[in-house]
Design a binder for these strands. Structure first.
Lengths: 204, 204
DNA sequence: TGTACATCAGTGAACGCGCGTTCACTGATGTAC
DNA sequence: TGTACATCAGTGAACGCGCGTTCACTGATGTAC
């Protein structure tokens, strides 16, 4: 960090994304303000317009980066389904929750900021990539179940996604429910465990 | 509706809550504005202050009414666990989703507006009442499972709550995922079905 | 290596806007006698 | 039933504020020769 405050920031685009992450984490998705992001980056309120069309595009870019990182983490957790499909699947689930807790700013930008990923935008692409990992994990997990006895992999991944998202929103954040009897991790672990047994994946 | 625009509104307090519901449904929790609610109720911007301390209190009151209605609907669906604990439990799950779809304004005010229900506020009370119905449904459902083989009822209700909430947020709203392969109802039904089998509730 | 110049990435002032909130006010309503 | 009066529930004007965005500008950087 050079204190001489150079005229050119050098990496303003990314600095704005970082500021967005912080602000969004502290104040919620709508509490975020272009002006404040600029301030936090040590730059005038007009500067962001050299890098983004406006407020919306900055949030979208933040969400995009979030989906990229998210996809990477899920993929790394999945690790090609090794050592076993079940352990890989479990790791993906844990990675989901870990991501939400470790990068709340990204998570909020992705799932709570109201960004639209309809159409064939870049956002839709990276989002589908990330979600594809969950579906893939479900697929390999169920490969040994005779067809006809198993639900579609997409459905299973949606179930797990829904439960994970619900746990994040309801129990991994500050407010609702207040002091919970169980940690988010325990809740998700036990929940998916019961669900998988229902699928016939883990015996008893 | 009297077009003569009487000086006294008559029921402004509730009219403001209704306006809040509409606005929150259309514009999201933060897009809601006291000024606009007043406008929609046909009243000056200062009028709401006769009934609420400010913007926040109006949202809280909206959420409070939502929790009340929510609790009533869940209780009605549960119906004392009749005719069978399982059918009652399923009905509660369906009632959850039905509430979210039919009263999105309430749902958003309750779960997405960021109202805090910590402490012993009135909000916390009505919220706990509503959530208690889900726990009760889980409890009677598991009554026949030998203790030691079943998880705590609160945990089970949290699992179901999380999955329901996730389905609502991810698949019952406009944007994310776009066109989903499955309806929210199917998703929740199949998801809880698999989960219950994992609990040992429904045999196969 | 120097120089001229195009381009890039900032500034700061200004705009119009809508918001939340307050204030002194006033019209309508309800009540005591 | 009438009347005086307190109280209630609105008005409308005003405030200070911060926002998103635009504009003409200027300092810094990079490049061609």
């Amino acid at each position: 960090m050079n204190k001489s405050k150079p005229y050119h920031h050098g990496n303003l685009r990314q600095a704005l994304v970082d500021a967005t992450l912080e602000l969004i984490t502290e104040r919620g998705p709508q509490g975020f303000t272009l002006a404040e992001a600029a301030r936090q980056a040590g730059v005038s309120a007009a500067a962001p317009y050299r890098h983004f069309k406006g407020r919306d595009e900055l949030i979208r870019e933040t969400a995009r980066q979030g989906y990229l990182l998210f996809g990477d983490l899920l993929e790394h957790a999945y690790n090609g389904g090794k050592p076993t499909p079940l352990s890989a699947f479990s790791k993906v689930g844990r990675a989901y929750l870990a991501f939400a807790k470790r990068y709340p700013g990204y998570y909020i930008a992705m799932f709570e900021s109201g960004v639209s990923l309809s159409g064939c935008s870049d956002l839709a692409l990276v989002s589908e990539r990330a979600m594809g990992v969950m579906t893939l994990a479900a697929e390999t997990l169920m490969a040994h179940i005779p067809a006809g006895q198993r639900p579609p992999a997409v459905m299973v991944s949606h179930h797990i996604w829904a439960m994970s998202h619900g746990v994040v929103e309801l129990f991994a954040r500050g407010t609702p429910g207040g002091r919970a009897a169980f940690s988010p991790e325990d809740l998700l672990e036990s929940g998916t465990g019961i669900y998988l047994r229902g699928l016939g994946i883990v015996g008893e």
